[in-house]
Structure formats: C-alpha cells, structure tokens
Design a protein around this nucleic acid. Structure first.
Lengths: 394, 394
DNA sequence: CACAAAATTCAAAGCGCTTTGAGTTTGCTA
DNA sequence: TAGCAAACTCAAAGCGCTTTGAATTTTGTG
C-alpha cells in the first residue's frame, strides 16, 4: 500500500514526534516526489488523532507499521525491536490511543473485569457493608487496571443473572456474597467454567470451591466466652438475616460457648434481621422490655449496635455496667467502635481488606500470575473496650 | 451446506422442542436416508447446547437458519416470519443462548452499560452516600437490563480515567458526581461525545450540560430561616468537604438567610470535612468547647449528625431545648432521622431517587426513547421534628 | 562471500455479533 | 399462466483487536 510506504519514509527519519513528524514528513515526501495526496492524508491522520479516537489500524498506518507489530509492541511481546517499541509507545502517548476493550475481549476472551451481582429490590436497603466491601475490591482492582461490572438483580433472579453475566462474556470472573445456608448458586458457579470466589461459605455442602470467609463461629465463641467469664448468664444476640450463613455460624459459636459452660441459648433472646440501626434499636428495646432482660448482648454489626445502644440509653441503663455489649466490627470507616459514647468491645475483621484480598485472588487467577490459596479463613480479633463489664447482680 | 439441509428437515416438522427434536430428527433423517454422521452432529449440537454456551452461529445451524435471520428474530426486526421467530425464541429458551455482549458492542457500538468512576484512595473512606446512590442507579438499570461498569480511580487520575473509560468503548454513558467548584472534568466530559449526566452542578461556569442537582442553597436557606425564627443567633455548620459544590451552596444558603436578617456567618462556626460520624463528633465537640458555643447547628448529613448528637449528649445538653440541630437527610435506610434519640428536623431529598432518576435519563438518552429534561433541580423538603426548638437564653 | 540462524515484521484469519445489499419464495393481479 | 410486488431469507462485509504462520531482514559463522 502506497500510504504505508510514505509513512514509513516519514517515520524512519527519527523517533515519532507529532508536530515534528508532520513537517518533516512534508519535506521527505516532497523530496521523493511522491504524490501530494498521500502527504495530505498522513497529515490529516495525525491531526485527527489529536481530537478523535484513534484505533489500531490508524495508529499502525501512521507509524508505517503493521497492526501486528503495534499490537505486539503494546502488549509487551519480546519479538519487537526496542526502537520500534519506543516509537509505538510515544505515538500512543501523542494520540491518546486506547484499545477498544470490547474488541480486545472478543479477540482474547478476556477483558479485565470482575462481575458482581448486586442484590437490588425495591424496599431492600442498600447495604453499608456492601459499599465498604466494594471499596476494598476497587482499591485493588485499580492497581491492575481492572474494573468491575455490577449487575443489579432482584433476589429471585440472581441465579439467572449470574448465568447471564458469565455468558455475556463481559466478565472474566465472578464474585458471590451473601451466602445462604444451602446455597444453590455455588453449584451453579462451579458449573460455569469461569473463575469465581465466594465471600463466605455455604453450610451443608462440601467446601470444594474457592472462598474467603472469616471465622464467624470463632468470633462469637470468643465473644461469648468473654461474657461468660465476666459472669453473664443471660446473653442476647441481635444477628443478621437468619438465612445467611454468617448469621448461622455466629449463632453457632455463641451456642457452643454457652454449652461448654453448661448453658443453652435461649432462642427468645435471638433476633434476626437486616443489619440496620432501626432493627437494632427495635430488637434491643424488645429484649429490655421482656420479663427477664439479658445482661449482655452480642450485635452482628456496629450498625446494629448503634440502634441497640440508643435503646439501652433510652432505658436509662449504663453500657458496660448495667449491660454489656459486644459487636462485630467490619471496620466501617464511618462508624468506629471507639467513637461510641461508651467505646465498644468488638470482634474485628476488615471488610475492606476482604474485598481487596478477593480482588487480588481473582485477578491473579485471571492473569495466571502468582499463586494464592484457594480457601482462606480469617480469624477475627477480639478487642476489649469499655462496653463489657462484670454482670450486674440480677 | 448439508448440515443445514438436514437441520431444516428436522426442524420443519414442528416448532422446535428440544428432546422431541432430537428423536424426531432421527426418524426424519433416517427416512430420507441421509448420512448418519449428520444426524449425530445435530444431536451433539443440541446436547452440547445444554451445558455449553451456544453462540449465534451454532444456534442458527441448529435451526437451519442463517445468522442474519436469527439475529433479526431476536432483535425484533419486522421482516421475520412470525412462526420462524417463535422457533428462534423457543430455541433460545431451550439452549439458554445469550448474545456475547462484547461482540454485540463491537458490532453496534453500544452495549447497555453506564460507566462510573469510583473515587478510591487508600485512606479515603468508602462513602455511605455513594452506596445509597448506587442502589438507586441499580434499581432502575436492572429494569432495562443495563449494568454499570465501575472504574475505581485515584482522585488525581480521575480525568484520565474518564477518558479511558470512554475510549475503551465499554460504556455507553458516563456519570459524574462529587462536583468540585470549578470542575475541569465537566468540560472534559463535554468534549467526549458520549452522553453523560452530572450529579450536582459546578460553580463558576456556564450550566450548559445535563445535570441533576438538589437545591442545596434553598435547603439550607430554609433550615437557617427556621432557626432564626426560633430565635437562634449563633448557628454553626458542620459541612461536607469544602471543595465540593454542594457544601459551598449549603454554606451560601445559610449565609443568605443570616444576612437577610442582619446577621453574618461566623466563619469560626463552620467546619468542613468528610461526612463521617467521627468528624461530626469532633467538630461538634470543638464548637461546644469554644468560648461562645452556638445554640443551633446544621449538619450536612445525618451521618454527621450522628457524631454531633453524641458530642451534645456527652456535654450533658438536651437537643431541642439546649441546642437545636437540623441535618440534611439523604434518606439513608440505615440511619433514619426519626430514629434518633431525639428525632431530627431535616431537609430531605432521597439520594436513591436521584440515582434512579439519573439512570432513567441516561438510559433514555442511549436508547433514544422518551424525552427527559436535561437539567433538573430538585427542591428539598424541610421536615420539622423534635430536634429544633426555641433558642435558649444565652 | 555464502548460508543458516536469529531477529523482526507482516498478511490474514478469526472472535461473535449486526447490517447491508442481494437473492428466494410466495401471493396477487392481469 | 406470466409477471411483479411483497414477504422472507441469506451470504458476506465489517466492528477493532489478537495471534498464527509465513516472509523478510539482519546477524553470525565457516
């Protein structure tokens, strides 16, 4: 192709540099008495490049190279002359060229993205915890130039949404959270032949899939033991939704600690609900109004604790002396346990760190770099602050 | 192509139905004494379809149709025989076929996605407000089978990230939030030739771009007036980050109300920071410790109010009598103003509704359906609850 | 200086979809 | 029964990228 030749001449003289090139081109081409139209076309190409989006073909044409070589130069293949690579790179800088991701994906089958299904339903609240997790995920993703595709979905359509997402070819990996007791979605993910990580673990099925979970059982076991050691005998639990496995495990941890000490969990002292301030308040109030109110309470989130604390204050009770409280702390930046009027004793595990870790694992799997464990169980820290104290005589 | 013929025969007999088809095919093909291999291939195709992902080509082959026709049938073009369309649709149902979005996008130039840039930085907190907004966006998106692509970005790289996102061809529209005073990103978006909506408005540049904003000035003007009417003379403001336009406008509204009543805004009573519980607490404490503490305070978010209330309680003051408080309420489901120990007077505007509306507008622009105003300014509601009362004698 | 090996570069074939422009059928009219 | 719309359907050309396998140039060696 003639244009290529002209461009080649133009470029061969020196490393690409935009303004320079256009002028220099002119001379060279003239000297060679090539057709003027060609020159004009090259110049136009360069000028367009400044405002419009360039594509690989144009870029290659401008450089007098083939698409193959340019593509290789950009993707770090070894068989490209160092000088050529430099020219390509600076042309990219000059033109602001960005590969079209859709095309890239179509060609390679992968495109630097992680798919999430975001549970959405009118009336179902946006979850602070979700946002915090996302932040962690993002923090790590940005480092690898990954993005994530969020597909909102009604809860009853989630399974289909996952399938759709995977089949759409828009994502390289999937992420599942809010695991339910015997979650059918896990089996579905396994059948999907696309990498995934589960945040949490199912109950009642083989744990033969990649997951990251925190030791919920252990956390609440520890917390309960602390309370027992402090002399508490009636301990309440304001838990997350009862169908989610983390809630189930927390209750289990609590139950175990009680039973090891010859007590049983009084089911009337367990409350399951979404983890909001409001439900926390309502649950606590109900406990306090009951015939034999608890002397201590475990909250599955600091958000719940927020409401619980309010209810306790309203009842005129003093946290830490009249009633003890331990909350699970996801390290939400907007709600620090040490900032409560009475700093809270907590079991701590950063949700953001979990997000970040999951991103790391997913990305490494996609890129086939590094080697991370497939299953991780993080221990939580028990941090004692002022909200726990010896049981009051009842 | 022979296969096509065979498939055609097979299919012509009745509307497609998977199991039926495979069996029936067998007979038909046998009757016609066609080669057995062909039969086997068709059968294999159908069986694969159950587990693997089918693509358009395979689907067309299975149906004995051309890709063109199948594609047209799926995309609602009129020139397809009604019966053919039915056959295609039920085959889609049987096989679980999903078009590859990347390919679709490459071919059409659009792909049902909205791009967000999510501000991420180590140490910068995930924002509850962001999550709530996202929920609204999602709620609407899911209805149109749109998803969104979230590109996390360090703050200093945001402009480039937007460009990248647009050039990547991965999104059909962009969304901008957290508008700063004289925000260069808006001009950039305008130059990008891709639809966008700004949540908020810039200050100090022509408002000649699509936006959705709430009347922040009006909200805080109203709130301040209420306090003035109640006799308050020293009013403090715990605001969001000082470089964001909503903060600037809120301060402006407050200032205007004061000046209309012959007062000025005491800058020492204004605090700018991220909108977290912690900062709210700190700011309020500082105000209360000052020489002439305010008798009323405006908070830019209920999250801030949370901390402020804590500080007030700690100081032994009674909200509503000793000190009045008005907060802006984004209608965060986890933090309802009516659930505060003293229910809060608020200026209200649902962040989720805004997200949903922006999605609606963006999607309608992309699909070129409907016709929405390009610029919207939502008024806020002033809702009086128990946290405001007559100024105490000072 | 010849010739093989190494180093570069290239043309062309997809990836899975939409869409254009060109057939085939079918249904009527004359 | 020919002839011509109208109704369908199709083959093929992209969209912008990667990647294969081949062609070209350069380098090294006998």
């Amino acid at each position: 192709m003639i244009l290529c030749t002209a461009a080649k001449v133009c470029v061969a003289m020196k490393p690409i540099f935009l303004c320079w090139c256009v002028t220099e081109c002119y001379k060279t081409v003239r000297a060679l008495t090539l057709k003027k139209e060609i020159l004009i076309k090259i110049k136009a190409l360069w000028e367009d490049a400044l405002t419009m989006n360039v594509n690989l073909k144009q870029l290659a044409e401008m450089l007098g190279l083939s698409q193959t070589t340019v593509s290789r130069a950009l993707n770090g293949y070894p068989e490209v002359n160092a000088e050529t690579r430099q020219r390509v790179l600076s042309a990219v800088r000059d033109t602001g060229y960005r590969p079209n991701r859709a095309a890239q994906r179509l060609a390679t089958g992968r495109a630097g993205s992680i798919g999430l299904v975001m549970p959405i339903a009118q009336g179902i609240d946006s979850d602070v915890h979700f946002g915090e997790f996302l932040a962690g995920l993002g923090e790590e993703s940005v480092r690898h130039d990954f993005h994530f595709v969020i597909n909102p979905s009604a809860p009853d359509d989630e399974e289909a949404t996952f399938k759709r997402l995977a089949a759409s070819g828009n994502v390289d990996a999937l992420f599942l959270a809010y695991v339910r007791a015997n979650d059918p979605r896990i089996a579905m993910l396994k059948s999907l032949s696309i990498p995934f990580v589960v945040h949490g673990r199912a109950i009642g099925q083989a744990a033969d899939y990649p997951f990251l979970d925190i030791d919920n059982t252990g956390a609440f076991y520890d917390a309960t033991r602390l309370l027992i050691q402090l002399g508490h005998r009636r301990i309440a639990l304001i838990n997350g939704p009862g169908n989610l496995t983390f809630s189930i495990r927390r209750a289990k941890g609590m139950r175990r600690a009680l039973e090891e000490n010859g007590m049983t969990l009084d089911e009337s002292l367990v409350h399951n609900s979404l983890m909001t301030d409001e439900y926390g308040h309502r649950a606590m109030q109900q406990f306090l109004d009951s015939e034999r109110p608890p002397t201590a309470v475990l909250c599955s989130s600091t958000v719940i604790a927020l409401g619980a604390v309010r209810a306790i204050n309203k009842a005129g009770l003093q946290i830490g002396s009249d009633i003890s409280l331990i909350a699970h702390d996801d390290v939400l930046p907007m709600l620090k346990p040490e900032n409560f009027s009475v700093p809270l004793t907590t079991t701590r595990s950063s949700l953001r760190a979990a997000g970040s870790r999951i991103a790391t694992r997913l990305i490494s799997r996609i890129l086939k770099t590094g080697d991370y464990p497939d299953q991780e169980l993080w221990r939580t820290e028990l941090i004692v602050r002022a909200s726990t104290g010896p049981a009051a005589r009842s």
